Simulated assay, not measured.
Amino acid sequence: MKIFQILFLFLLLVPFAEIYLLLAVGGIIGAFPTIALVVFTAVLGAWLLKQQGFQTFRRFQENLAQGSIPTYEIIEGPILLIGGALLLTPGFITDLLGFACLFPPLRRKVAQYIIEKHLIQVIQSGSPFRPQGAAPADALEGEFRKED
């Protein structure tokens, strides 16, 4: 299955599952406790996102100060952004996925997977914009004008 098909199914099915789960939990504990729980997870998620974001940025700056490339931190930043967006979305499934994005060991494993499976292939094969099997760009660029 292609990534766009998976994303489409995710965006289609998750809201239905979220509504069902919110109604089921609301039926068990009541409407106001359910709303309070959703608001609490959003506030807790925002606070954790702030903490994790500052820690990642601090490690980013430390790596730059040491002269090394902050590879993991560059990948972890968007993971934190996705996690924050999921935590601010009302619902329990998105909160679970958002908290998973904020969990440092899991986030590091996801970043490691992305680096090893996707970025290293791009580096080894050259530019991602050059067609597969195309010759390296050794040509000089310039203008040509034929004068008689």
Rank of each mutant, 00 (worst) to 15 (best):
K2H: 11
K2C: 08
K2E: 14
F4M: 11
Q5P: 03
Q5Y: 10
I6S: 15
L9P: 08
L9Q: 12
L9T: 10
L12A: 15
L12Q: 06
L13E: 07
V14S: 11
V14N: 13
V14G: 14
V14I: 15
P15M: 09
P15S: 09
F16P: 03
F16H: 12
A17I: 10
I19A: 13
Y20I: 13
A24L: 13
A24R: 10
I29K: 02
A31N: 00
F32K: 01
T34V: 00
T34F: 00
I35A: 02
L37R: 00
L37Y: 03
V38Y: 00
T41P: 04
T41F: 11
A42I: 06
V43D: 03
L44Q: 07
G45R: 10
A46P: 05
A46F: 13
W47F: 09
L49C: 08
F54Q: 10
T56Q: 07
F57Y: 11
F57W: 14
R58L: 03
F60V: 06
Q61M: 10
E62G: 02
N63K: 14
L64S: 01
G67R: 03
S68R: 14
I69H: 05
T71W: 04
T71R: 11
Y72V: 05
Y72W: 04
E73T: 05
I74K: 05
I74H: 06
I75M: 10
E76T: 08
G77F: 09
P78N: 02
P78W: 02
I79R: 00
L81M: 01
L81F: 07
G83N: 06
L86I: 05
L88G: 10
T89K: 03
T89V: 08
P90G: 05
F92M: 02
T94E: 11
T94N: 15
T94A: 13
T94L: 15
D95C: 13
L96I: 15
L97R: 07
C101K: 07
C101R: 07
C101H: 11
C101A: 12
L102K: 06
P104R: 07
P104D: 03
L106H: 06
R107N: 11
R108M: 11
K109H: 13
A111P: 03
Q112I: 04
Q112E: 14
Q112S: 14
Y113R: 12
I115W: 15
E116Q: 12
K117G: 05
H118G: 02
L119K: 00
L119V: 08
I120P: 00
V122C: 04
Q124K: 14
Q124S: 04
Q124D: 06
Q124L: 09
Q124N: 12
Q124E: 15
Q124Y: 03
Q124R: 09
S125G: 04
S125E: 10
G126S: 07
P128Y: 08
F129P: 03
R130F: 01
P131L: 06
G133T: 04
A134Q: 10
A134F: 09
A135K: 07
A135S: 09
A139P: 07
L140V: 14
L140G: 14
E141V: 15
E143A: 06
F144G: 01
F144S: 01
R145A: 07
R145C: 06
K146H: 09
K146Q: 11
E147N: 12
D148R: 15
